[in-house]
């Protein structure tokens, strides 16, 4: 039995892959206040699963297409005077509901719905790990390449414009990266908890970061630690792994927030 046959090792690798891609992207989601945007994109994935099963194509492809479609739709609608908060809420939950209804129509296919909703990290194969890491690398390269422009556009669209940066293009890059994260994370944490992997590490890292770059790195670290901690906790306590990973992240968030509160009071 080789090292890579061990399911815990595979699960750790897949989880860490998702964490280090989701965390820096999650920083932008937090800075740009796109939490609902992430939800909607993730929930659209379940619709993608249904479509992929119906047409017997790859799940990854179906999810990627639906996530891109949803993210693209939202990007196109934003800034056109709609009440974005409401619209995003409608889209996010409609996508989830429609996806669940669509899956129930599939006859003769046995679908483990829980695996798509909450992930099935302990069942990842070496091929899954390879896909996760390819996606993660793609996202990291994308963010590395656009970092400064993305940051400027996040700060203020007009400021970016005046510097010759197109905020629309940066928004599209965010959209693309988000769709990729959803597609590769669905197996690991499931559609319902993908947003948690984006937000919680970033929010935790904020308390001890003095620069955007540091926050991105710290968020990746926090994300990876919650994956490892969550895996071991779920192993020991016999709890569902995806939710345990997120719960571990939450514990770190609470710890960091309390520490920050005590520090500021001591000053």
């Amino acid at each position: 039995m080789s090292f890579f046959d061990d399911f815990i090792v595979l699960a750790s690798l897949a989880g860490i892959g998702v964490a280090i891609a989701a965390a820096p992207l999650g920083c932008f989601v937090v800075w740009r206040r796109m939490a609902y945007f992430g939800d909607a994109t993730a929930h659209a994935a379940i619709l993608g699963v249904a479509l992929a099963l119906t047409f017997q194509t790859s799940i990854l492809g179906g999810v990627l297409v639906m996530a891109l479609l949803m993210a693209g739709t939202i990007s196109a609608l934003s800034g056109r005077g709609y009440a974005m908060d409401t619209l995003l809420g409608v889209l996010a939950h409609s996508a989830l509901a429609l996806g669940l209804v669509a899956v129930s129509f599939l006859k003769g296919v046995r679908v483990d719905l829980m695996a798509y909703l909450f992930g099935d990290i302990l069942a990842v194969s070496l091929a899954d790990v390879a896909i996760v890491w390819s996606g993660a690398l793609l996202i990291l390269i994308l963010l590395w390449w656009r970092w400064s422009s993305l940051l400027t556009a996040t700060l203020n669209p007009e400021l970016a414009r005046a510097s010759g940066i197109s905020p629309q293009r940066e928004q599209m890059i965010m959209t693309l990266a988000l769709a990729i994260v959803v597609a590769v994370a669905i197996k690991v944490v499931g559609v319902l908890l993908i947003t948690a992997m984006l937000l919680i590490p970033a929010a935790t890292a904020r308390t001890f970061s003095s620069s955007p770059e540091r926050m991105a790195v710290m968020a990746s670290l926090v994300g990876s630690l919650s994956v490892i901690g969550g895996l071991f906790a779920s192993f020991r306590l016999d709890t569902p792994t995806g939710p345990t990973i997120v719960a571990t992240g939450t514990a770190m968030f609470i710890g960091a927030s309390l520490t920050a509160m005590l520090n500021s009071r001591g000053r």
Binding site: V30, W31, R32, R33, S148, S149, L151, T152, T154, L155, N156, E158, L159, A160, R161, A162, S163, I165, A202, A203, R206, S209, S210, S211, P212, R214, M215
Partner: peptide, 23 residues
Amino acid sequence: YVPQKLHIDPTLPLTVRRFLSLP
């Protein structure tokens, strides 16, 4: 360009030095 107001989200840690280096 000097905008009318620049809202910096409290979740974004940004020093003056880092801001000057954008983009």
